[in-house]
Amino acid sequence: MVSPLAAEALAPAASAPLPAVVVRGVTHRYGERIALDGVSFEVRPGEIFGLLGPNGSGKTTLFRLLSTLLGPQTGSISIQGFDAARETFAARRKIGVVFQAPSLDKKLTVLENLIHQGHLYGLGGADLKARADELLKRFGMADRAGERTEKLSGGQRRRVELAKGLLHRPEVLLLDEPSTGLDPGARRDLTAYLKDLSAKDGVTSLLTTHQMEEAEACDRLAILNQGQLVALDTPASLKAKIGGEVVTVTAGEPEALAKEIAEKFKLEVQALDGALRMEREDGHRLVAELGEAFPGRIETVRVGRPTLEDVFVRMTGRRFWEETKK
């Protein structure tokens, strides 16, 4: 079950500081269905680590395990050196969790929400009040402290959620699809906050996402597909793994055409939602060749440098793509 990739992820880098999060051989089932299948990776301290995966890839399950909402079945997770299963409370104090679904009490004010949260983490008194004020100021919410959270906009709530997650000075921040429901401006703000947290406080962020822009901003990305880790690297390296250019073709009869292109040009052709995508060093030349070879059968052609989306499609679009290549 250990893929070469997992082994690579496990190998300790020379003289690296202690990892913030270690996930080792985690497998999780819901009844018969396997949601996670032998996932292992490490998150370095202070980095912004992205978990990228389509629905059903297991990233939500992984998030639940990391946040200790679920207990591990097989394998282990440790956070700042604390085992999530055996030292749950110690691990919990090290993590701040920002859920995808809102977690604020709407009937309480912004400040009251933070005070209750602080109490749950064992904070109290003047320290807690000062910390709450400091965070509200940092997120530009100081003037809304006395407002009930039901009256806030989506972006403002998200900022309060973030303040809530950071209240107890966690060393690791876990965020589940943090940009959901945010406009592009607020999304860029969020990325800036995370970078700032990393630079000033050394906070490690681990986030799940399906936004390419957000994934692009991560220091490293793990791509999950059908419960397995299929790639783990920096966005730049992931893109570099796809050589040359990506050509995307739409056509009337994609299946038949895919087979013919694959035979004629000796290429791997992926069919996805009626579009065919292929990679080649000189993609722009392939465009011309395709036009000559299949006159009238191609509707549109697009050629470009590989994006993270291409990486994502290549890694997750077809499960056995990697195997057929080998």
Partner: peptide, 11 residues
């Protein structure tokens, strides 16, 4: 409303 989830992961 989601409040419970943050209690469930609190120490």
């Amino acid at each position: 409303e989601g409040f419970l989830q943050s209690v469930l992961v609190a120490p």
